[in-house]
């Protein structure tokens, strides 16, 4: 049996430094999940569904489409940096209050997409919300409640500011 060659690289994830070992062709999604960041969900593996969304240097990306080696020394943010079960972010509260969560599999990606949208645009229109969430699919709720949640989140974030 041939041994798979591995490489080492450093990442800053949710503000902390890590060194991981992985095969040179490994995707960021797999490296994150194998090292405990299971809040990053594995969906289509083709860059369509957005379940695996993370922020790479503050930009929303599909971690299934990124080779881990190419994210070396970069800053990665998962949904756990945004808020936790006991200290949820206003965006997460809004998703619960608006009934925009059913199975919850797409929710981490939706929350991160909403986070980057509201950072750039605190008062998005329905059209702007649809554009910003165009890479995040939900197969349970439909999208009406998700759009409602983003609008509610915008209000909550403004109140918190």
């Amino acid at each position: 049996m041939c041994e798979v060659m591995k490489m080492k690289a450093n990442f800053k994830i949710n503000g902390k430094n890590f060194e991981f070992e992985f095969p040179p062709h490994a995707k960021l999604l797999d490296v994150l999940r194998e090292n405990g960041f299971t809040e990053v969900k594995c969906g289509c593996r083709e860059g369509f569904c957005g379940a695996c969304s993370v922020l790479l240097d503050g930009k929303l990306v599909n971690s299934c489409m990124i080779y881990a080696a190419s994210a070396k020394d970069r800053e990665i943010t998962t949904v756990k940096k945004i808020g936790t079960l006991h200290e949820p972010h206003p965006i997460q509260e809004a998703f619960v209050e608006a009934g925009a969560v059913q199975c919850g599999y797409c929710t981490p990606g939706m929350v991160l997409a909403t986070y980057t949208l509201l950072e750039r645009n605190p008062n998005p229109t329905d059209e702007e919300i649809k554009e910003a969430l165009d890479g995040n699919f939900c197969r349970c709720t439909g999208y009406v409640k998700i759009i409602d949640a983003v609008k509610l989140a915008a209000e909550k974030v403004k109140e918190n500011d």
């Binding site: 860059g47 369509f48 930009k59 929303l60 554009e131 910003a132 969430l133």
Partner: peptide, 12 residues
């Protein structure tokens, strides 16, 4: 470009 792929892919 606005009609190319999706927001997370256009970031990459």
């Amino acid at each position: 470009l606005k009609n190319t792929a999706t927001t997370p892919l256009r970031n990459r």
